[in-house]
């Protein structure tokens, strides 16, 4: 059965999508759309901004205001859009390379400003669009086409980065826990401030194949087994934490939002 969400929110004439067999991006995208549906938002009031890469192609499939920008700059474009029209719900779709490497500066500063943008990172641990080069999210030791002997870089903890930079809502989930993504995107959109939602997805074609991670089912199973809810994760010993990834709402705080602060400043005149 075709999901009602597809007819309601997708540009059906743009389908099928370009993603490979077994790619997890569709699950993340569906979860974003489901969250929007649950919130009952008007499509005209939503602007989805994306960068460059596999995940960033998502914007073209969605029947919202959509802006497919340059590599890494989605948050900078989104800042201009949100600041110009604070009534819009601005959602940024980005990947680990797009957001943490070339767009890393924009990420930390959008978080620092606490501008009301909901950022959803599709983290597949690799540059997929260009054929499997290691990214800032490729675990140390894993292989990519540009790390044929294993990656010697340390990988980012993107959520810790966003939290330290000033985001007011930070969460992580996996495509196995799709319902959790939906809930987190809802919370992210509702949060009046910068929301950072990391979704761990899979790239069987490049990351999986290069690192003998098995097929898509094996990779999703691995995500299921390694992800632990934050409340349970905190109770684990340091040794037990080593190969586990905390998921859930990791951080929340109240802090005045950027466009509202600017509006207050304008009232001085």
């Amino acid at each position: 059965m075709v999901s009602k969400l597809i007819d309601k929110y997708y540009r059906t004439d743009r389908l099928p999508h370009i993603w490979c067999t077994g790619c997890g991006n569709g699950i993340v995208l569906r979860s974003i759309v489901k969250a929007i549906d649950n919130l009952g938002l008007n499509k005209d009031d939503i602007c989805v901004v994306s960068g460059i890469g596999c995940s960033s192609r998502a914007s073209g499939y969605l029947d919202f205001n959509t802006v497919h920008t340059t590599h890494g700059r989605a948050l900078a474009f989104a800042t201009g859009i949100k600041f110009s029209n604070p009534n819009l719900h601005v959602i940024v779709i980005t990947g680990d390379g797009d957001c943490a490497a070339i767009g890393g500066n924009h990420l930390i500063h959008a978080a620092r400003r606490n501008i009301d943008i909901t950022t959803v990172v599709f983290n597949n641990n690799i540059y997929g669009m260009t054929g499997g080069q290691y990214s800032p999210a490729t675990p140390t030791g894993d292989k990519g086409t540009t790390a044929p002997y294993g990656n010697i870089d340390y990988n980012f903890d993107l959520c810790e980065l966003a939290k330290a930079a000033g985001a007011t809502y930070v969460s992580r989930s996996t495509i196995y826990a799709a319902n959790m993504i939906i809930k987190q995107v809802e919370e992210g959109i509702k949060n009046k401030g910068f929301s950072f939602i990391e979704t761990l997805t899979i790239c069987p074609t490049y990351y999986g194949r290069k690192n003998s991670k098995g097929n898509a089912v094996d990779m999703v199973t691995h995500l299921k087994d390694s992800a632990v809810n934050i409340s349970a994760y905190e109770k684990l010993s340091e040794e037990e934490k080593a190969n586990r990834i905390p998921i859930g709402e990791l951080y929340k705080r109240n802090r005045p939002e950027y466009t509202e602060k600017y509006e207050s400043m304008m009232k001085l005149f």
């Binding site: 340059t70 700059r73 474009f77 800042t79 201009g80 859009i81 110009s84 029209n85 819009l88």
Partner: peptide, 11 residues
């Protein structure tokens, strides 16, 4: 980038 976004939003 922000300037382009702002222009798309009508400014």
């Amino acid at each position: 980038s922000a300037v382009i976004g702002a222009s798309l939003a009508g400014n």
